[in-house]
Design a protein around this nucleic acid. Sequence first.
DNA 1: TCTTAGATTGTAATATTTATAAATAGTGTA
DNA 2: TACACTATTTATAAATATTACAATCTAAGA
Lengths: 145, 145
Amino acid sequence: MSEVQLKEALDSLKDTGVRITPQRHAILEYLINSMSHPTADDIYKALESKFPNMSVATVYNNLRVFREVGLVKELTYGDSSARFDFVTTNHYHVICQTCGKIVDFDYPALDEVEHFAAQVTGFNVSHHRMEIYGDCSECAKKESH
Amino acid sequence: MSEVQLKEALDSLKDTGVRITPQRHAILEYLINSMSHPTADDIYKALESKFPNMSVATVYNNLRVFREVGLVKELTYGDSSARFDFVTTNHYHVICQTCGKIVDFDYPALDEVEHFAAQVTGFNVSHHRMEIYGDCSECAKKESH
DNA sequence: TCTTAGATTGTAATATTTATAAATAGTGTA
DNA sequence: TACACTATTTATAAATATTACAATCTAAGA
């Protein structure tokens, strides 16, 4: 499953003329397998043992490359650092305001909203983002004590 | 119109026991009248002539206070710095990816999405955010040349 | 294998935001 | 109005995230 995703991602890099370096391979692999939404620093720390000489700049550079190619989405929430999400299907995120946990959830794309906005504002709409905030069940339980 | 908003905002501060300082007055006034979505630095620069001694920390402190009271919303987009929006009615933003312009647009709240997410994830949902990205008519025109 | 454009590294620089302590000033009360 | 109390402001330093840059290295095609 995830191997297919990785292969597709690498193919997509090759198609765009982006070189496949061991670092890029590892970053992509980590993003796909982590099932989470790591920060650049998370990725850097996770790959430290494998690549003791890797620079933080490499992580940032490659995340930008991946974003430009469309393999990765950059998420900016309230907290200080950006998070990165490997793009699979269109899904949304539910974020716990207490512990920061992020849960994916599928939902049919809100195309009507985009159309409506395009009409009202005259924009050439390309995409939208939506997140839902609240407390996860564990945190909600703790708070009620 | 905006004077009413300002008065209501100041009353709301008084009710919460938050002191009304000249700096707070000016920051609120600026947020209400600017009709834009300034960064902390924008506000700082705009009030520099009026308050030559004001510290950047004051701007940040007060924006946090306003956010906690619910007068102001903090918006984090892709770019480096957070933007602040005086809360009036529930509205969404359409953001131009080329020039950065932000246009408000009204839309009935997406309550169904919140309910759906609550059911699927077990979260205690409090709110959501949504933005639409694209190119504004001017930028779209320029690009087609 | 050789070449070369692109990638990585290491470091410095920039930018944003927060922390801290001393000085100042708003607000209720007498 | 004057006083006292405490929140707020200021100035500065520190923390954190991200980008810029130049030198070195390497992936990939010829």
